[in-house]
C-alpha cells in the first residue's frame, strides 16, 4: 500500500519519465550507439544538468526528452504524455505547449525583432495580439532587455540573444525548459549572468530546467547533476 502511494506520488511529481531508452544512429557507415538503455526521472521544479564529454549522448538524450528525436527503444513520458502513442503533429503540439527550448546557437529568427521572436511561440499557440505583446514586453523586462524590444538578433550581443531565447522559452509557461549548452558560446561573465537569471526563474516561477552541458559553471549551479558517458548514466547526484 505504502509502495503504491509512493509510486503515485512519484508519478504526480515527475515531469519526465524515461525507461530503458536506446538510440542508435549512423555517422556515414559507422554505427553509433548514442544511448544504451537510459532510465531517468526528472521532477517538477528541478534545475538539473546532464553533463558529459562530447559524444557521450547528452544532446541526444535532451532531443529525445524534447520530442525532437524519437528513441529506437524504451519509453518516454513528458507530463503524462507517452511519446510512443503520439504522431509528429501531436509531438509538435506538445513541444509548442509544454516545452521551452534554448539552443546553443542560431536560437532566434534573424528577420524578427527581439519582441517578435518572443511573441512567435505565442503566435503559434494562437494567443491574441495584445496579450502577446504585453507578455513579451514583461518577460523581456524580466530578463533585463527593457528598451531593446525592437532590436533584431544581429543588433544584440550573444548574451542578449540567449536572454531573448530564454524569454521565448518561458513566456508561455511551459512545463519544462530544455537548454542545450546555453552558455557554450558566451564568455564566463555573460554565461553566469544567464545562469543566475534562469536559476531565479526556477526559484520564483517554479519552471523546470534541464541543461545539457560540459561547462563546469553550469554543473556548479545545477541542483542535480546527471553524468552520462558512452550512452549510459554513470552518476546522478542531487546537491
Amino acid at each position: 500500500m505504502k509502495l503504491m502511494r509512493y509510486t503515485r506520488w512519484r508519478h504526480d511529481m515527475a515531469i519526465v519519465e524515461i525507461k530503458d531508452v536506446k538510440k542508435t544512429y549512423f555517422q556515414g557507415k559507422v554505427k553509433v550507439e548514442a544511448l544504451r538503455g537510459v532510465d531517468l526521472t526528472i521532477d517538477k521544479g528541478e534545475f538539473a544538468a546532464i553533463a558529459g564529454p562530447s559524444g557521450s549522448g547528452k544532446t541526444t538524450l535532451l532531443n529525445i526528452i524534447g520530442g525532437l528525436d524519437l528513441p529506437d527503444g524504451g519509453t518516454v513520458i513528458l507530463d503524462n504524455n507517452p511519446y510512443a502513442q503520439m504522431n509528429q503533429a501531436s509531438l509538435a503540439s506538445l513541444r509548442l505547449h509544454k516545452i521551452g527550448f534554448v539552443f546553443q546557437a542560431y536560437n532566434l529568427i534573424p528577420v524578427l525583432s527581439a519582441i517578435e521572436n518572443v511573441e512567435y511561440v505565442m503566435l503559434l499557440q494562437g494567443v491574441p495580439r495584445k496579450e502577446r505583446e504585453e507578455k513579451a514586453r514583461t518577460i523581456l523586462d524580466d530578463v533585463g532587455l527593457e528598451g531593446k524590444y525592437n532590436r533584431r538578433p544581429a543588433e544584440l550581443s550573444g548574451g542578449q540573444q540567449q536572454r531573448v531565447a530564454v524569454a521565448r522559452a518561458i513566456v508561455s509557461s511551459p512545463a519544462i525548459v530544455l537548454a542545450d549548452e546555453p552558455t557554450a558560446n558566451l564568455d564566463s561573465k555573460t554565461g553566469e549572468s544567464l545562469l543566475l537569471m534562469m536559476k531565479k526563474m526556477n526559484k520564483d516561477k517554479k519552471v523546470t530546467f534541464i541543461f545539457s552541458t560540459h561547462d563546469s559553471m553550469v554543473m556548479a549551479y545545477a541542483r542535480r547533476l546527471i553524468t552520462i558517458k558512452d550512452g549510459r548514466i554513470v552518476n546522478d547526484e542531487t546537491k
Binding site: A92, L94, R95, L96, F103, I109, P110, L124, Q125
Partner: peptide, 16 residues
C-alpha cells in the same frame, strides 16, 4: 535549413 529546424522544434507544424 537551421531556421526551419528551429521553427519545427518550437512547435511549428509542417503545413505552417
Amino acid at each position: 535549413m537551421r531556421e526551419f529546424g528551429l521553427m519545427k522544434a518550437l512547435g511549428m507544424r509542417p503545413v505552417q
